[in-house]
């Protein structure tokens, strides 16, 4: 507190978030309305306007960020019911390959493959992981980490669905505007949808499973079925991202199961602040462009990227979004002492 007169003291007042957002206060004045609405409207408008401004390469980066964002949201959703996944690439790969094979062999357009890949990928993920929903913590993480690698090797060894060459010359998106906006809107819908869902009774039960699964079982709720449902939802979201990128690149290969798709979403959620969805979204909106802008540095890129990640985790362990949220709800003033 050097530089400030010693008779002053910082006074911090945490706003009653509940008071300001739950009752009549919320609509008592336009300042209060803005207070509530701005944090939701600003990111929505920003994301909807960005595709108009960003062209070419950076437009693609935005789409890429949205897809990583979906994977990070899907990761955060699983984490909120106690399933710590290190295998987001499994979901991504399922979506990518379902869309890829449909498009390659049957020449179906994205309008058909995307919904099929989203639902099919979700079903495949839930079915494949349902035997291990009893595993918790690091054991579940290990299984999810291994599965994409296993599938990757299987594709390589058997040569099925394109083998190590992948499937190329797939049906592209008709119109770049439509695809870009589809990415952005899906990302936003998923973000706000998850935030809403987790505060409903359904999400409450999921969070309770994370806190104490035995207590949930003694409340007569089939926790394994709920976890499988959560896997389906998370799997579908991840699969959408995979299917979208397949059509975006007009190619699907073994790289769809690459470790990047597993690790980067976790990093994004850790950076942004897990458990809020907004944190995961924010994290991927920071990490993906950062990673791309460091590309000019060549070999040093990954080193710098890791440095930024480590620094942020040490300096802001709670995550950026938690920090921002706390500050937003706080008044800080200097009051005269004595």
């Amino acid at each position: 507190m050097t530089g400030i007169d010693a008779t002053y003291r910082k006074k911090r007042l945490d706003r009653g978030i509940k008071v300001r957002s739950d009752s009549v206060f919320a609509i008592s004045s336009y300042r209060e309305i803005l207070y509530l609405v701005l944090p939701r409207v600003v990111p929505v408008i920003t994301l909807l306007v960005l595709p108009l401004i960003l062209k070419g390469y950076w437009g693609k980066v935005l789409v890429f960020a949205c897809m990583y964002g979906l994977l990070a949201l899907s990761w955060d959703f699983l984490a909120s019911c106690g399933l710590f996944s290190l295998g987001q690439s499994l979901f991504f790969g399922f979506g990518a390959y379902v869309a890829g094979t449909l498009s390659y062999y049957l020449h179906l357009t994205p309008a058909i493959t995307l919904p099929i890949a989203t639902l099919g990928g979700g079903l495949l993920s839930a079915a494949l992981l349902s035997p291990v929903v009893r595993l918790r913590g690091v054991y579940f993480a290990m299984v999810t980490l291994m599965l994409p690698m296993l599938l990757m090797k299987m594709i390589e060894a058997t040569g099925l669905v394109g083998g190590s060459h992948g499937l190329s010359a797939l049906v592209p998106f008709h119109n770049e505007w439509i695809s870009t906006y589809m990415a952005v809107v899906t990302f936003l819908v998923c973000l706000f949808g998850f935030r809403r869902l987790i505060n409903e009774d359904y999400g409450l039960v999921l969070k309770a499973i994370r806190d104490d699964d035995r207590a949930v079982m003694s409340a007569a709720i089939n926790i394994y079925w709920r976890k499988i449902q959560a896997l389906f939802i998370a799997g579908a979201v991840g699969s959408f991202a995979g299917a979208f990128m397949t059509h975006h690149y007009q190619f699907v290969g073994m790289s769809a199961f690459a470790l990047d798709y597993s690790i980067l979403p976790v990093a994004a959620a850790a950076l942004g602040g897990p458990g809020t969805f907004a944190g995961a979204a924010l994290g991927s909106m920071i990490l993906v462009p950062l990673s791309e802008s460091l590309r000019a540095l060549g070999g040093l890129r990954i080193a710098l990227y890791c440095g930024v990640l480590i620094g942020s985790v040490i300096l802001l362990p709670e995550g950026i979004f938690h920090y921002m949220e706390r500050k937003y709800h706080q008044f800080e003033t200097f009051v005269k002492v004595g």
Binding site: L204, K207, A208, R214, S218, A219, A220
Partner: peptide
Amino acid sequence: AGQGISRTFQMVRLFYNLPAYKNLIIPLSS
């Protein structure tokens, strides 16, 4: 539990990150 046998735990098992009344929403939504 779904057939109507309910129990308490010697070491209480609750959802500490939820408000007290929200703890009851879990069984109430079963």
